[in-house]
């Protein structure tokens, strides 16, 4: 047990938590945007898979990481657009259309993988990028400033999104559309356009989240690479009370416990591995049950909008 409390182990746990958090963070922040405007997108996992595949395929062929990232963002945006058409214009039941989108993304990414690659290959992804000066800070430098650029991007996204939602007119409109679309409409806000924008932006971020797996964390693509990660991301949005900073805390907590259980096993603390894997789930339930804050659930979440309805 002593081994757990050495500096090296603690730094290791925290630094791997930061890495694990990255894809969740992209997906969950994107989902926060969509949900704040009143659209529940359950298809995040499918979008991530498509993003992961596109990024990987482009990098595999062009060896250009930036193009790969753009491809992931573009494909994510298109998947978001599909979701928006179904759930905003066609007013489909959001829970089901999200599952449909998930299945579509899961199947299509595997199919394209089958046709275009055929077998698991690897690429050189984003390298670790030590930020000068900051990475020299003892401990903190190792934990926070010794990662690939996509990791930094994910964490930068949190204050940016918080600023967008709370301090700009756009943010005000998004929140208005999510809370009371009728009133927003009466005030001249284009409800449908706002929802299209947030769902597409959310799709784009989910696509980048997939790229964070396939060309940064893992540097490979495999069928069903995300293994349900996107669903956890959606759950973490609820956990974070629809606030970017809350979502960040939720993501960090979940990844922290996940990396803690890996470390517990490596150090050889003798608990059955199944029980160790359970830890993140149990802890999330406990934390979410502590009634210290109420989230600001968008009142119109999952409700399609039609004028005069």
């Amino acid at each position: 047990m002593d081994e757990l409390f050495t500096t090296a182990t603690i730094v290791g746990i925290l630094s791997s938590a930061v890495r694990l958090a990255t894809p969740y963070l992209y997906a969950a922040i994107g989902e926060t945007l969509a949900q704040r405007s009143g659209v529940l997108n359950l298809g995040v996992d499918g979008i991530m898979l498509m993003g992961a595949f596109s990024a990987f395929y482009v990098v595999y062929n062009t060896e250009n990481l930036l193009t790969g990232l753009l491809a992931a963002a573009g494909v994510g945006l298109l998947m978001g657009l599909l979701m928006a058409v179904a759930s905003v214009t066609m007013k489909a039941e959001q829970g089901i259309s999200g599952i449909g989108l998930y299945l579509f993304g899961l199947g299509l990414s595997s199919l394209l993988f089958r046709i275009m690659l055929g077998t698991v290959e690897s690429v050189d992804g984003f390298p670790r990028l030590n930020i000068p000066l900051l990475s020299d800070i003892p401990l903190l430098g190792e934990i926070f400033f010794n990662h690939s650029i996509l990791v930094y991007g994910a964490f930068l996204l949190v204050p940016l999104t918080a600023f967008l939602l709370n301090r700009t007119t756009w943010g005000l409109n998004i929140r208005a559309v999510g809370n009371n679309p009728q009133a927003a409409d009466a005030l001249g806000v284009n409800v449908q356009a706002i929802r299209y924008a947030t769902v597409c932006a959310g799709g784009m971020l989910a696509g980048i989240g997939g790229a964070a797996l396939s060309i940064s964390a893992l540097n490979i693509f495999q069928e069903n690479l995300t293994n349900g990660l996107g669903f956890i991301a959606v759950a973490l949005v609820y956990f974070g009370g629809w606030r970017p900073v809350g979502v960040l805390l939720g993501v960090l907590l979940f990844s922290f416990v996940n990396s803690l259980q890996l470390w517990l096993q490596v150090i050889g603390i003798d608990i059955p591995s199944d029980i160790a894997v359970m830890l993140p789930y149990i802890l999330t339930i406990i934390v979410v049950s502590i009634p210290f804050r109420r989230g600001s659930e968008p009142a119109a979440l999952t409700r399609p909008f039609s004028r005069g309805a």
Binding site: I99, Y102, F104, G107, S109, S110, L111
Partner: peptide
Amino acid sequence: PSSLIIALNGLIVL
């Protein structure tokens, strides 16, 4: 491939 079926299923649901 099973993946084609999954993708088609998704489209049908959508």
